[in-house]
Every structure is written in C-alpha cells, then in structure tokens.
Write a protein that binds this DNA or RNA. Structure first.
Lengths: 190, 190
DNA sequence: ATCATTTGAGGACATTTGTCCTTGTTAACC
DNA sequence: GGTTAACAAGGACAAATGTCCTCAAATGAT
C-alpha cells in the first residue's frame, strides 16, 4: 500500500485522505507464475499497479510470431492500454513471469474516482503522458540502436529481466532473433 | 477553420458556441518551405493544427545523425510534445517541408481553455491517448517489419511524402540507410 | 528416478543491410 | 546562363543478421 501511495504522490499531490478513500476500491490480486492478467481478444477491464513480480506483455504479429511488447516490474502500472480505454478486445496478452502481486481497479470504478476526485483526472492524464514518453523512447531505441546496443540498454535498465524472461522473449522485445541474441551474449561474455 | 472544427468534433462533442469562443485564441501562422516551427533546445510554446502543408519532426541521435521522428500532414496536430507539456527545452526540431499553414495556440492560452471549457480537458486527454497509440503503432512497425515492408507501409499511409521529403529523411524515419532505401526502390520499380 | 519437453548455445550458410565511394542529375545561386 | 552545391542511384565489398539445424543442459511431469 505504501509503495502505491508513494507512486501516486510522485505523480500528483494526492492527500492522505484522498488516498485512503481511493485505495478502498482497489483489489489485491495474486498471480502465480504463468497466470494471465489479460488474455488476447478479451476486453481488458482492469488496470493494475505491480506491488511485486513481473508481467510480460506480448502480442502476435502479422507473421504469427509472439512479440514481447514490454516487461513491467515492481512499482509500475500495467494494463492493455488501448483495450482498457476503449473497452474493446485486447490485442495484447499480459502474463506473469513469476508470482506477482497486483493492486487492480476496474474501468467503472476508475471512472467513479475520476468523477469524485479531480486529482484522479490529473493522475490519469499524467500516466497517459508518461506511457507516451516511454513508448517514444522505445521507438527511438528501435530506430537508432544496433542489436548489441539494445541488449546492453536492457541489461542496464532492467538487469533482473534476464533471470525472469526467456531468451526468446527478450529477443522479440529487442526486435532481433534468438540467434542474434545468442551471438551478442557470447561476444559480451568474453 | 472548418477543417479544424471537424477535426475537434471527431474527437469530442464540442458545440459551435464553444468552438467559436475557442478559435478566437488561436493564431494563424504561415511557414515557408524550410522555416522552423520549433528549434532544438528552445522551449516549445505552441501546439499547432496543420491546415495545409507538411512538417517534418526530427532529432539528433547519439551518433549525431539526424533522425526523422515523424511527418505531420494536413488535418493533424503537431508539436514537440514533451517540451510542450513540461515546458522544457525541446530535443525535437519541427521544420516545414513545404509552405505550410498552421493554427497555433500557446501553452498559457491552452491552459485557460482547459480551465474555462471542460470539453477541452477531454480533447486534451484524447489527443494524448491518440499520440500514444500512434507511437505504439510506430514501435510495432519498427520491431516487426523488414526495411521493404516499412517502406511499402509508408507509401500506403502517406503516399505524397515521397514528393515532399528527401530519401535521406525517409530512410532515417524507417530506421534504415539511404543505400538500403535505394535498393528497395530499385527492386520495387521492376 | 526416468523420460519427455523445453530452452539455450552455437555451426553453416544465405540474405540483408551498412559503409565507402563514384557518377550523373537536378536544383539553387550569383 | 554558367557554376556550385545538394541529392539520388548504384558498384564493390564488409559486417550484421536471419534461417535452419543439431546438440547438450535444464526443467517438468509421472
């Protein structure tokens, strides 16, 4: 709970009272390794704060290959954004890579918060902005960096992902093949 | 003006009265080919609706190369998003690829609209969402498509960009070199 | 514990892409 | 109108990455 409060306070000046009122509509959800938080083609009803654990988001691309969209870890929010905001079927799948604890809120309850607490409007807007900036950064990396640079960046930014995700998952996140990632790892280990 | 009204109505149900009140705080700006709308390291004070023309957004990457971030055309919004929302120096440069007509509004005036007209809060939120979804799409393309696929996609989605942007600009947008783009174009022309 | 399945490393070769360069063409400027 | 600079095409070779594959180790299930 404290983690979530701190997370929100870093976004907007939510009062303790507002937080206490709000937190009561969140639900704690425990996922086991391999469990799904959102499945493809289902409408994503919830957005979640990750208290602990790791969620892998992926989709099936035009070539029918699984592509990792992102790895979400502790102290981050996770959802199938497009599906959640439009309440349409999700193209993304969200799956726990390890046992994971979430604080979730569903679409209707979030809209009640938006209505009752103006601060939540700010929080919602800022979160969307942050998601945009993250995606912009990711696109810039994909556009400008070599396979090796992208891998080293991931190691630096999410060092523990290596212990949690498979080589396959990481390769598709970086937009390269397993073979290329294997070569890079070999080269680095020297 | 009508173009802009239609654009806004497609986003949120703004009334004719609200539109008439709002439009008065926008400024029409005419850029000649080559003129800058936003320069790197300056704070981006304005957001603009493109009435006609084309804006190229680019940045200098870690290897000191110009990288095209996007091509914005008629009936779209354009700004250096991060710089505008945080009012911090822009990493992006926005330049007209041809004579361009804009409707612009500055940061302070937009915040007045947010305050006075709740509908503008919605518009602002939805625009941010759309920007996110565009960026998500772009990242997905960069991650999954080959050079040729990316080029064909650009041809399909922004066919007239070829007449307006240089091969260099297009190559950096697609994350490939001039040489590769030249080969693709040769192959296609057969 | 045993067997089957999944996963990661890496060989061999093909393909794609990049680098460096030259050339011809177009466009811009005095 | 002639000169210069910018731009696009493409040759030759190098480097990076992908494809297909095998093998060994790790993991999971019975």
């Amino acid at each position: 709970m404290d983690k979530f409060k701190q997370f929100l306070k870093n976004i907007a000046p939510i009062t303790d009272k507002e937080f206490a009122d709000s937190i009561s509509v969140f639900t704690e959800l425990h996922l086991k390794k391999g469990d799904f938080f959102v499945k493809q083609d289902k409408i994503c009803r919830n957005i979640a704060f990750i208290v602990s654990g790791t969620i892998r988001i992926y989709y099936i691309n035009q070539k029918s290959e699984e592509t990792t969209y992102s790895f979400c870890q502790e102290n981050c929010l996770t959802t199938s954004f497009k599906s959640f905001i439009f309440q349409t079927p999700s193209q993304l799948t969200l799956q726990a890579l390890e046992n994971t604890v979430l604080l979730t809120i569903d679409y209707d309850k979030l809209n009640v918060l938006y209505k009752d607490y103006p601060i939540w409007q700010n929080i919602g807007r800022i979160i969307t902005q942050n998601e945009f900036l993250n995606m912009e950064k990711y696109a810039s990396v994909l556009n400008n960096e070599t396979a090796k640079e992208k891998y080293l960046r991931l190691l630096k930014e999410q060092p523990n992902i290596l212990q949690k995700a498979s080589i396959e998952d990481i390769a598709s996140y970086l937009g390269i093949t397993r073979r290329t990632l294997s070569r890079i790892r070999q080269e680095i280990s020297k």
